[in-house]
Amino acid sequence: MVGNRAARRIVVIVLMLAAALWVVPIVWMVSMALQPNDLLARTTSNVAWGLIPWPFTLDNLGFVLSSGLTPRWFLNSAIVALGMTSLVLVLSSMAGYAFARIPFPGRRLLYPLVLAGLVIPEQAIFIPLYTMFAEWGWHNGYFALIAPRLAVPIGVFLMTQFFRGIPDYIEEAATLDGAGRWTVFTRIMLPLSIPALSTLAILTFLYAWNDYLWPLVSASRPEMFTITLGLASLQTNFAQSEGLGRVMASGVLASLPVVLLFLLFQRQVVRGIAMGSGK
C-alpha cells in the first residue's frame, strides 16, 4: 500500500505539471491582454516569458470595451446564442415528445429519416445554404446565423431518447384527468425534462458562441459579426499589427462568457457531452 501511495503521489505530481503546462497558453493570453501595447510591440517576454503582466494595465480591456466593434460583436453573439438555444429547445422538445409519445401515423418512417440528417455535416451544405439565403435576402441578419442549426436533428434525438425513458403512467394519469396534449407537454413533460433540456441548452449555446465557418460566409458586414468571427478578423490583421494587447484583450473578453458558463455548469456540460455522443 505504501508503494501504491507513493506511486499515486508521483502520478498526481505529473498530472499537476501537465495541467500547469495545459493552462500556460491561456495565462499567457490573459497576461498579454494586461500589458501595455507599446511594450508588446518590442517584446512579448518582459517578465517570466511574458507570463507575469508587468507593467500592468487595464487600458487594453478598456479600449476594447469602449471603442471599435467588439461590444457590438459581443451583443450579436449573445443574441445569436440565446436565440438559437431557445429555438432549438422549443423545436427539439416538441418533436422529441411527438416521436417518443404520440403514436401518430408515419412516425416510424419519419423518425429514421430525421435521424439520417445526422450524417449531413454543416460543412457539406454551407454553400447551397449560402445561395438560398442570398436569394431570400437573409444574410447579415440574425436569423440567417441561427437558422441552419435549427435543422440539426441531434436535439430531437436527445429529447426523444429522454422522453422515451419517462414512465407511461405519469403522462396517462394526467390524460385521465382530462388534460390535453399541450397541457401534458408543458405542465408535466417539460418540467420533468429539465436535465435533458439544460444539457441541450448548454451544448447549443457553446456551439453558437464558437461557430466560425457559417458566420464567416453569412455575415459579410462587420456590424453583424459574432465575437468569434470578429476575433478572426482581428487576427488576420496581424501583419498590420494594430496592437497585440488589444487583440489579446478581445480574445479574453470573447472567452469570458463561455468560461464562466462552463465553471458554473461544469456538471451539465460534462454530462451533456457524454449524452450528446450517444452514451
Partner: peptide, 30 residues
C-alpha cells in the same frame, strides 16, 4: 393523435426540410 403528432413535429420538420434537406439536394444540383 395524427393531428397532435404533426403539430408537434411540424415546426422542426419545417426547419429540417428547409435548412437541411433542401440545401443538401440543392448542393447536388449546384
Amino acid at each position: 393523435d395524427a393531428a397532435a403528432g404533426y403539430l408537434f413535429v411540424g415546426p422542426f420538420l419545417l426547419a429540417y426540410v428547409a435548412f437541411l434537406v433542401t440545401p443538401f439536394v440543392r448542393g447536388i444540383w449546384i
